[in-house]
């Protein structure tokens, strides 16, 4: 009986452990093997060593999908972080009607999925879409957005910025944890708004920025839904995951697609490690300072 008690907790976590073996350990080991095969999933897999991985770097479509994803990430992640942070700072001010604005700006997090992807296809329509209509009000004739290869990625970045309000929650939570006393003592020293932002708000928010940077990298490389629906001229909307999906489920190249998944995993891992390695240089944990509220590491 006593012995049973000892393992009672194990009983509670056992569904997850079971799931971990069935849906993580086994598939990962299996994926390791599949990556080395030529396999359409109907006939027997053929072991081909590193051929899939070698072929990847000669595959123009693969290189294009990698480029599309990387360029998107380079622009969308920083711009998204800046926009979300700015919105959070402004929305954190106690002005009249702020709840209304907060709700409006948070809407992109509430509405998503195929509906919103379709909406973007429609509002980016060069002739009858909303964006070019608004541009025409100020005398600009807008580009052919999704129909022009050089405007496809800017379209995606614009969509990412539209969703920035939906990402404000973490920053808002971070802002509300900053102790008032820090601002008060800065005010006594005569600091103005910008100085307070630059030397208190921003450093105190670096853990949240760090968290969002990591999540942003993962999100950009996993981007699938809207890219699959929206596409874009000249293969410029063919993100990494879209090409991976096509290989697996349109061409049934399971080995090749799995090799792509491993490369994706490596890229995300390396980038995340890089961000973690550089974090001591720019991420500031308030727990390191006396007299401020303790915050769990993120």
């Amino acid at each position: 009986m006593k012995k049973l008690k000892k393992y009672e907790g194990f009983l509670f976590i056992s569904p997850w452990i079971l799931g971990f073996f069935i849906f993580t350990v086994f598939p990962i080991s299996f994926a390791f093997y599949i990556g080395f095969t030529d396999w359409n999933s109907f006939t027997e897999p053929k072991f081909i060593g590193f051929d899939n991985y070698i072929h990847l770097f000669k595959d123009d479509n693969f290189l294009n999908s990698l480029k599309v994803t990387v360029v998107y990430a380079i622009f969308a992640i920083p711009l998204g972080i800046i926009s979300s942070l700015t919105i959070a700072v402004i929305v954190n001010m106690k002005v009249k009607g702020i709840y209304f604005f907060r709700t409006a700006l948070y809407l992109p997090a509430v509405v998503s999925g195929v509906s919103i992807a379709l909406l973007w296809r429609w509002i980016l329509d060069p002739d009858y879409g909303l964006i070019n209509l608004i541009l025409s009000y100020i005398g600009i004739s807008g580009p052919n957005w999704l129909g022009d290869p050089s405007w496809v990625l800017p379209s995606y970045v614009m969509m990412a910025i539209w969703g920035a309000g939906g990402g404000m929650l973490t920053y808002l939570a971070g802002l509300q944890e900053i102790s008032r006393s820090l601002y008060e003592s800065a005010e006594i020293d005569g600091a103005n708004g910008w100085v307070k932002f630059r030397h208190i708000t921003l450093p105190m928010l670096t853990p949240v920025i760090f968290y969002n940077l990591v999540m942003g990298i993962i999100g950009a490389f996993r981007k699938f839904n809207d890219a699959y629906i929206i596409g874009g001229a000249g293969n410029q909307g063919q993100f990494y995951m879209v090409y991976l999906y096509e290989n697996a489920f349109t061409y049934y190249k399971m080995g090749y697609a799995t090799a792509m998944a491993w490369v994706l995993f490596l890229i995300i891992l390396l980038l995340t490690l890089l961000v973690f390695k550089t974090s001591p240089l720019w991420v500031f944990y308030s727990g390191e300072v006396e007299g401020t509220k303790n915050k769990p590491n993120r």
Binding site: A31, M241, A261, L264, F265, I268
Partner: peptide, 13 residues
């Protein structure tokens, strides 16, 4: 861990 690595084996399973 991104689910993409396990996606295809789980599908085959």
């Amino acid at each position: 861990l991104p689910g993409e690595v396990t996606m295809i084996p789980v599908f085959l399973m």
